[in-house]
Amino acid sequence: TTEYTFTDDEEARRAIEELKKRGLTFRYEKHGTTWRVRVD
């Protein structure tokens, strides 16, 4: 499991789109302004 942290909404959304394109399994949660994206 790899975890990424983003504080920029645009950056987080781009990363999420990219992961979807690659067909990877991931989860994300947003805490205030911080996004945590975990890739299995």
Rank of each mutant, 00 (worst) to 15 (best):
T1D: 08
T2Y: 14
T2S: 07
T2K: 10
T2L: 13
T2D: 06
T2M: 12
E3P: 02
E3A: 04
E3M: 11
E3T: 13
Y4E: 02
Y4K: 02
Y4V: 04
T5R: 06
F6G: 02
F6L: 02
F6Q: 01
T7M: 08
T7K: 06
T7H: 11
D8W: 03
D8I: 04
D8L: 04
D9F: 13
D9Q: 07
E10M: 09
E10R: 09
E11W: 06
E11Q: 11
E11R: 05
E11G: 05
E11H: 07
A12C: 11
A12Q: 01
A12H: 02
A12V: 06
R13V: 07
R13D: 04
R13G: 06
R13I: 12
R14N: 10
A15Y: 15
A15N: 04
A15T: 10
I16E: 01
E17M: 10
E18F: 10
E18Y: 13
E18S: 10
E18L: 10
L19M: 08
L19N: 01
L19I: 06
L19A: 04
K20M: 12
K20S: 08
K20W: 07
K20Y: 10
K21G: 05
K21E: 07
K21Y: 05
K21S: 09
R22Q: 11
R22V: 05
R22L: 13
R22N: 08
G23M: 03
G23V: 01
L24G: 02
L24M: 09
L24P: 01
T25L: 11
F26I: 12
F26H: 03
F26Y: 06
R27W: 15
R27G: 06
R27Q: 13
R27D: 09
Y28P: 01
E29I: 11
E29T: 11
E29L: 06
K30H: 05
H31P: 00
H31A: 07
G32H: 03
G32Q: 03
G32P: 00
T33Q: 11
T33M: 09
T33H: 08
T34Q: 10
T34L: 13
W35I: 14
W35Y: 05
R36T: 14
R36Y: 15
R36K: 13
V37S: 00
V37Y: 00
V37Q: 00
R38V: 15
R38I: 15
R38P: 00
